[in-house]
């Protein structure tokens, strides 16, 4: 046992060296982004890795103002919150049905959810564009929210279902004996018990919407209604030479995600790995 233990300490040094190098590879570029966001283009050109003597926090103020972040953040918040609420309602109901109600053909629905997430978006994005145009949903927040709800609902339904399946059946049976309807069981028994599942699902769906690019760039052309992602792209194209400014603009988009992730990393990791892999 003693020999085993000493063997262990010897080998973990090797583990730590490699893991440290991998961590540098993962985080180094992000760190450089933060450094460059407080430098001038000339300073970046001179040495991209230098730590600026006098950090130019001014870049943030300029990027925030010229990038019209007050507006774009508002748009992204509308899209994110709208989608999360929609997905949690739709996915919560679906997850409840698949976990606790008798559904004939539940396998077919489960199979669709698996295959449905595999359908390449390019198959339906073009017709969807023309359908949305016909119904006046193009260039509207509602139009984007509906698409985001649809594309993330199979994942959300599945993830919420996996939390609900784990709930003890006795609670549900007891409520039924007390004469609760299915709807009452869902809202008064299942919901309070499975909120961690809802929180995790909401975080992951919200992250996806905040970061999403392809759907936003296709279905939203109105400059005042664009979310952060696509307006950041436009900003980058407008100030191609001003590295400090575009890097600061990128950090503004990244910062809320990073803070939320660091605060709730267990939930993010749990949801993203389980939801993605347990299907």
């Amino acid at each position: 046992m003693n020999r085993l233990r000493s063997g262990r300490t010897e080998t973990t040094a090797f583990n730590h060296v490699i893991l440290f190098l991998l961590a540098v590879f993962a985080l180094g570029p992000v760190l450089v982004l933060f450094l460059n966001s407080v430098k001038t283009s000339e300073q970046i050109a001179a040495n991209p890795f230098s730590i600026p003597a006098e950090p130019r926090f001014d870049n943030y103020a300029v990027a925030f103002e010229k990038g019209n972040y007050v507006n774009t953040v508002k748009n992204s918040v509308i899209l994110t919150v709208g989608t999360v609420i929609g997905v949690l309602i739709v996915g919560g109901m679906g997850g409840y049905a698949l976990a606790h109600l008798e559904i004939r053909g539940a396998n077919i629905i489960a199979f669709y959810f698996l295959v449905g997430t595999a359908i390449p978006i390019q198959l339906y994005v073009v017709p969807l564009f023309f359908i949305w145009k016909t119904f006046g949903l193009l260039n509207t927040h509602l139009g984007l929210i509906i698409i985001y709800c649809a594309t993330s609902s199979p994942f959300a339904t599945y993830l919420i279902r996996s939390y609900m399946v784990a709930l003890p059946k006795e609670f549900i049976e007891a409520a039924k004996i007390d004469g609760a309807s299915k709807f009452q069981v869902m809202t008064q028994v299942i919901l309070p018990l499975s909120w961690p599942g809802f929180l995790t699902t909401g975080l992951i769906v919200g992250l996806g919407v905040w970061n999403e690019f392809l759907i936003a760039v296709t279905f939203m052309h109105h400059p005042d209604l664009k979310p952060v992602a696509t307006s950041l792209r436009a900003f980058q194209e407008r100030f191609t030479r001003d590295w400090g400014l575009t890097n600061a603009a990128s950090v503004i988009m990244l910062l809320p995600v990073l803070i939320l992730f660091l605060l709730m990393q267990r939930r993010f990791i749990e949801g993203l790995t389980q939801g993605g892999m347990k299907m």
Binding site: V30, W210, A229, S250, M253, L254, V257, Q265
Partner: peptide, 11 residues
Amino acid sequence: FFIPYVIASVV
């Protein structure tokens, strides 16, 4: 290791 995965493609 996970941080790059939560950062947007635009960034």
